[in-house]
């Protein structure tokens, strides 16, 4: 009888061991990583998050062990993670510090859609869920393809020019090396900052006026604030303002997080760019263009 109990106990402990092998303890210091992990159905692997990780709602129940890309080392040590996964590390030296606590640190890129696909595949490997990872990769790629084919139907010359205002003081927009630039392209528009090689850059009013965008998107402004943009000194001549194509109050996370919801973000952009752009407006836009 006793020996049977011992055998059962050993079996149970081995099973627990095996289970914990399959379930690594993970801390995410990046909101997009947190979203992907929950999407893959592995939310229970997470033992800590950054203060910026706020989606989905379950994520908020996790203990905060850092800011975006900034670990709080003592908090981190107390949850004993196997992996710290992030897309950004503010201080490269903190990687060593975290490794000295016995965790593996995985730093992933998030500059373009390919990075997202790589990221999902890697998380699938680490978290032992290659099936759901592949499903997400397929869903994402399919949706992108779909947008691409819709965008390609419009000739490049008549695609509307989009100015996306990341921040208003200073005027900050995104350059060609960001996934937001790609999102605009897949949505069928042209990012006026595409030729700038940097990620985000402060731009001048004169440059915006010279570019003369057909659509202005200000995610950082609250909804219903488009009138404020239109009232800015000198902006009345910009074709987007003339034709009242100013959009504010967008869920910023869908735009600025390279995650599962990026597809929704592209859909929103496409709605802004396409549902309203009529041929005569783009013609007006190119006429007003500076020589």
């Amino acid at each position: 009888m006793r020996s049977v109990l011992v055998v059962i106990l050993i079996c149970l402990s081995m099973a627990a061991q095996a289970a914990s092998d399959r379930q690594p303890k993970v801390v995410s210091l990046s909101p997009s990583i947190t979203e992907i992990i929950f999407l893959l159905g592995k939310g229970d692997c997470l033992v800590g998050r950054s203060s910026y990780c706020d989606y989905p709602a379950e994520a908020k129940k996790l203990p905060v062990v850092g800011n975006f890309g900034v670990p709080f080392l003592e908090h981190l040590a107390s949850v004993k993670p196997d992996y710290v996964i992030t897309t950004k590390l503010k201080d490269k030296a903190s990687k060593q510090a975290m490794e000295s606590l016995g965790t593996k640190v995985i730093l992933l890129d998030d500059n373009c859609f390919d990075d997202y696909i790589k990221c999902v595949k890697m998380l699938g490997d680490i978290l032992n869920c290659p099936m759901s990872a592949n499903a997400e990769v397929w869903r994402f790629s399919k949706a992108l393809e779909n947008f691409k084919s819709m965008a390609d139907r419009v000739p490049a010359a008549s695609r509307p020019k989009v100015y996306i205002e990341v921040w208003h003081r200073p005027l900050l927009t995104c350059g060609g090396k960001t996934f937001i630039n790609d999102m605009i392209e897949y949505a069928g528009g042209i990012n006026i900052g595409r030729n700038e090689k940097s990620e985000y850059f402060p731009c001048s009013i004169e440059w915006i006026m010279q570019q003369n965008p057909d659509i202005i998107i200000c995610p950082a402004m609250g909804s219903g604030k488009s009138g404020e943009v239109a009232k800015r000194e000198g902006w009345q001549q910009i074709s987007a303002v003339k034709s009242n194509h100013i959009y504010t109050g967008i869920e910023q996370d869908k735009l600025y997080r390279l995650g599962p919801r990026t597809i929704d973000g592209i859909a929103i952009l496409r709605k802004y760019i396409f549902d309203d752009v009529k041929p005569e407006q783009s013609a007006a836009g190119s006429e007003g263009k500076a020589k």
Binding site: E206, Q210, W235, Q237, G288, K291
Partner: peptide, 26 residues
């Protein structure tokens, strides 16, 4: 300024150039 304009444009500015000049003056 960044917004390029020839001398002839300055004498007879388009509405956009006029707006740019107003911004510069301010």
């Amino acid at each position: 300024g960044t917004y390029s304009a020839g001398f002839s444009d300055l004498l007879n500015p388009s509405p956009m150039l006029a707006a740019v000049l107003k911004l510069r003056a301010a």
